[in-house]
Amino acid sequence: MLPSSFEYVAPTSVDEAVQALATGGGDAKIMAGGQSLLPMMKLRLASPSLIVDINNIAGLDTLEESDGMLRIGALVRHGELERSELIRDRYPIILDAAQHIADPLIRNRGTFCGSVAHGDPAGDWATVATALGAELHAVGPNGAVVHSAADFQTSMFETKLGADQILVEARIPMPKPGQGSAYKKIERKVGDYAAAAVGVSIVLDGTTITEASIGLTNVGPLTIHAAAAAASLIGKSIDDAEAIEQAGVLAAAASDPVSDLRGPADYKRDLVRVLTKRALRTAGTRAQGKEA
């Protein structure tokens, strides 16, 4: 199966790409990894008239820490995150998610930023970005724009990224002392989207939770920022089973899943509860410098 016909340009700078995007009206699409877009085009669920391929733009493959932030450029593939020592050492939630996105072949092509920009509530990276408080740096005809990951998605497959903007980099605050994170995903098999997944990041002072953030994947029309669940943990001990259970219950309450082939809504809601607890425990173990 083949996509409908389209025009194709492969600019070598972000400025050229922004210009190209403008010529396509609202109908142009940026292609980075193309691992979500191309399958949709093959099934003719998407038929853009212009593809702006950004793979030839130098400098978009940054993966480094600077100025207190982890910078993930628009061409950083899932597989690079999975293989990165920096990620392995300091961002366990990113490693967790990277190992379970799609399959290893798709991970060699698909990108972090592309996934976030796709606006799919089943996307794992939007949840991770939410849990880690990421900034999303875009460039449009009027220059740079910064969006917050937590409220980036506006509806199914829609985000605050303007049709004339390119998401060029995600920036994630470097971990604080006592920070731990984890991503727990239930999928029916490798390559499946999550039946439900939960990403958490917490900061511990001893065993006391001082900061918490929880994101939920594929349990509603949007990537869910489970703020009440996170807030309920502040001041509680990571060893307080009741508090952890309560956070799970609140996270489940924040979810809004639909019944589908991955299971009925009540199952998915319960998965959120269970996975939230498991993710918090793993994050707690990691925050305390223990292996998990």
Binding site: I186, R188, A195, R262, G263, P264, Y267, D270, R273, V274
Partner: peptide, 17 residues
Amino acid sequence: LSSHKVWKALRDAGVAD
């Protein structure tokens, strides 16, 4: 034997997680 079917059987039988 989807996980959700087994989950339902367990929960219906009152088994906690």
